[in-house]
Design a protein around this nucleic acid. Structure first.
Lengths: 259, 259
DNA sequence: GTTGTTCGGTTTAATATTTGAACCGCTGGT
DNA sequence: ACCAGCGGTTCAAATATTAAACCGAACAAC
């Protein structure tokens, strides 16, 4: 594993629930020697990617991330342009909604809105990169990427997050046809217990899948009627976000027409 | 120069005016071999820090930055809590206002508001890290950090950005007493031609300077009356932001009392 | 007050990673 | 048709990184 990969992997340990981490803790979490972690974090700090609390010596994410994220959003306002659509989804569905972008082999949550309609709700912690095989958004992306890319993404050991996570590539691949046809991916407790996920793909201007938008709800609130309503909301949002981003759904695969 | 530093330095070439950069261009800009740059960018892409346009093969900043910036802001909402204060500054001053955080030896712009009162205005491109010696915000920080830290920050060759950039450390250090006394740093064309900058420091909870807030205006609009008005606006804003962030100005150094 | 544990941080011989010149096929401009 | 420059690959040589052992400090338990 390269040095850059090691260093950047350290940033993934930070989350909303764990915003400050000490040297020894981080070394344990990462599985590297303290000396190694200190050198990697010092390099990140020199460039503003992390900063160190002067008093407690704990590390936290740094201001360079704000600056670069600002540049990214200023030049490609995906989050801003999708936000009204997420707000509409949130109001219409009454559940937590989220928007993710597709990375090399994972998804990055770039925005989400927690429902305010229920006290018991699905909370998104953006700290984790989302796996493709264990999330509705991931399956939505797998279903609409070239078959070879999907197979490659499912090679290697797939992590089990709950007792319900499907980790057999053949089983996952067999579900992708149905997802393509309906335009909606659904996962029951694949990534987190008691959470039911539904998502649809968002496409780029060249017709490739670039992300997904979805709804996450406690299993107890999932009824047939709710699923039907949610499908329509998600499809509409996916189409609207694709259009807002200047994207185009690939031919023969317009999300939602099979409904 | 370490590998991590090399890789992260590549991200600094991206700006709002240059959001997509090809491999050869980036290699020239960075002064590294193309093979080196490709390897570094591939490592960054694998972690979502950059992504590569499928068609043009150009690189741009990636979604991981959005995710991590979101975590940072969710756990330490500096940008969000300062935004109303910046909006007030913008309205009261009629000029471009900006907010920066102090890194190891530079400043990161985390928010700014361009004036809408004038067609001819100072535009901030957040792409660059701001030097301490050549900016009003930088001088404001230098003036309020421990003297030893300031001297260390001014060691080494200081870059000249315009014909007016002061690069003699002794001259810069001699101006810091006055800045401490008035609470306001001012620079005339130190970083960019025709731009006059004024700024005041923002403090953290331990009394250390953590950033700065300022106004940037075309030199042609700088009058004695405007400067006086601007000083009051900046002082108020610096105090308000310090308070909003749970900070406290150090004893004997409350920004603005000397006015 | 004493003892033990764990913290952040340093050192450096051993080990691993990175580098970049030369090369390739492709593309666009002339 | 030709040429320049693109993105990308290769691998011997060069450079950087690693982590075990160690340190002083701080805190908790007794």
């Amino acid at each position: 594993m390269g040095t850059i990969d090691k260093a950047l992997s350290l940033l993934d340990f930070f989350s909303e629930s764990q915003s400050e981490i000490g040297l020894s803790d981080l070394a344990r979490m990462a599985g590297y020697d303290k000396a190694t972690v200190l050198r990697l974090m010092t390099a990140l700090a020199d460039r503003g990617f992390v900063e160190q609390n002067v008093k407690t010596r704990d590390f936290r994410l740094g201001p360079a991330l704000l600056r670069l994220a600002h540049i990214r959003e200023a030049t490609l306002p995906q989050r801003a342009s999708a936000r009204p659509i997420l707000e509409r989804m949130s109001q219409e569905s009454g559940e937590t909604v989220h928007l993710l972008l597709l990375g090399r082999n994972h998804l990055e949550t770039i925005d989400f809105i927690e429902t305010s309609a229920h006290a018991m709700r699905v909370y998104m912690d953006a700290g984790e990169r989302i796996p493709l095989h264990a999330s509705a958004s991931g399956l939505a992306c797998l279903a609409h990427m070239p078959a070879r890319d999907a197979e490659r993404a499912l090679s290697g050991a797939l992590k089990s997050y709950t007792d319900h996570t499907i980790t057999d590539p053949a089983e996952i691949l067999s579900r992708l046809d149905d997802i393509r046809e309906t335009g909606i991916a659904e996962i029951d407790r694949g990534f987190e217990d008691d959470v039911y996920g539904m998502a649809a793909p968002v496409f780029a201007s060249d017709g490739r899948v670039t992300g997904a938008v979805g709804i996450a709800t406690p299993c107890s609130r999932v009824t047939a009627a709710f699923r039907q309503t949610a499908h329509a909301i998600i499809r509409q949002a996916a189409n609207d976000i694709t259009r807002a981003w200047g994207g185009v759904a690939p031919e023969g695969q317009v999300a939602g027409t099979a409904a």
